[in-house]
Amino acid sequence: MKALQFSTTGDLAALQYVDVPMPVAGAGEVLVQIKAAGLNPSDVKNVLGRFPYTTLPRIPGRDFAGVVVEGPQALVGQEVWGTGKELGFFADGSHAQYVTLSAKGVARKPTHLSFAQAASLGVPYTTAWDALERSLVTAETRLLVIGSGAVGSAALALAKIRGAQVLAAARRPEQVKALQAQGFNAIQLDNPGDLAAQVNAVYAGGADVIFDTTGFWLPAAVPALANFGRIAIIAAPADGHVQLPALALYRRGGSVVGINSLLYGVEACAAMLEQFGRFFDEGLLPLPEGLFESPLAEGLERYSEVNQGSGEKVVLVP
């Protein structure tokens, strides 16, 4: 079968479009014919050697949607989607024509999502779902989501379903306008020192939960936090270090929750996909738009573009 594969790390030039042997499903596994596979920044970082536990040679790719062609009879012929920490790191991933994984690691694809749409959602939506779950966002939680990227957008949509009070924050005026057009209360980020006043103007006493999807607003988020509030983070500055105003945090009884999608295997991710996937079919979650569908054969070019900061959501199609 055709696949993208790398045998060394450190340079995207190591990624090649090659012929590899067809995978074979073992006991308790499924063989999925890939119809579409999402390309995430973590896939690019994987080839660049940012994950020391990756084993080589390796086919990258975490997110996918496709059809089960081998495995338990109840699953054969079913349209499925999936994601998980194994894929692309210590098991071959989805940037290929076929992939094998645990039969419990696939979820039924929502019928309202195309294969490309489903393949674009795995990492962003499971990350956002985990952030809301672990920071205890429920009905009436006063939530601030910082950042309007894929994870931030997913968090806003999922929090709305939970009945939370939602405030969005973005840097650029056009992003704020877009969020407001979607029906969200939104503020524009500028001076970190102003964030607490901006949030308190909306939530008297601060936000119960602040989800920073950018990695740059943790220090500024602490003064904007309500007593016993939680700050969820998924990113950090390049050097991994940030000055945390610990005195202000503990005086509020606050806590910081680290969100890492690579802590969850395919079976855990499938359970998440099953929980929120039905909301797409019920019309409660927005269907993805503006996807860039690209042939798998052009994957090397797409990897390079994502590495250079392209904001388009790329979906590779075998």
Rank of each mutant, 00 (worst) to 15 (best):
Q182P: 06
Q182F: 04
A186M: 05
I187M: 10
Q188I: 03
Q188D: 05
Q188N: 03
L189R: 05
N200H: 15
A204H: 13
G205V: 01
G205M: 03
D208L: 02
D212E: 12
T214N: 10
T214W: 11
G215A: 02
W217I: 09
W217E: 11
W217T: 09
A224H: 08
L225C: 06
A226E: 12
N227G: 10
I231M: 04
I231A: 01
A232I: 13
A235T: 08
A236I: 00
A238D: 11
D239P: 05
G240L: 08
H241F: 03
H241S: 09
V242E: 14
Q243F: 04
A246S: 14
L249P: 13
L249D: 09
L249Y: 06
Y250Q: 09
Y250E: 02
G253Y: 07
V256S: 09
V257A: 01
I259K: 10
N260Y: 13
L262V: 03
Y264R: 14
Y264V: 01
C269D: 11
C269Y: 01
C269H: 03
C269N: 14
L273E: 14
E274V: 11
F276I: 09
R278M: 11
L285Y: 10
L287W: 03
F292A: 07
E293G: 05
L296Y: 06
L296A: 05
R302P: 00
Y303A: 01
Y303R: 04
S304H: 02
Q308V: 00
Q308S: 00
G309M: 00
